[in-house]
């Protein structure tokens, strides 16, 4: 659980929470009655697509930050991808 309290963990959780929150107005836009009559499957696809996109981007940024901290901390090299 330490990872969830770390800065990267908080960022990742925020990205996930943001994606989840973004699905709520979509449900509202469709309308409660219409929403109740249709499958939740497409909402899951949208949620997963947006979550994956932001997780990949946040992951890339964290990876750059980690490598940069490694160099600033006195290391001469940390092999990049």
């Amino acid at each position: 659980m330490r990872i969830l309290r770390s800065r990267p963990g908080v960022l990742l959780l925020s990205a996930l929470a943001g994606s989840l929150a973004s699905a709520v107005p979509t449900v509202a836009q469709v309308g409660t009655e219409a929403f109740a009559q249709q499958s939740l499957r497409p909402y899951w696809y949208v949620f997963i697509a947006y979550s994956l996109a932001w997780l990949l981007l946040v992951g890339w940024m964290l990876s750059i930050g980690r490598r940069m901290r490694g160099l600033e901390g006195g290391g001469t090299e940390d092999r990049d991808a």
Binding site: G18, T26, V46, A49, Y50
Partner: peptide
């Protein structure tokens, strides 16, 4: 973008909600 995608833009008639993936797929 998120505000537009989830609050403003209309839902596509044929594909429905899942078409909103388009707004992350095409820019990427």
């Amino acid at each position: 973008l998120h505000w537009l995608v989830f609050f403003w833009v209309g839902t596509e008639r044929t594909m429905g909600i899942v078409q909103r993936i388009f707004y992350v797929h095409v820019p990427s």
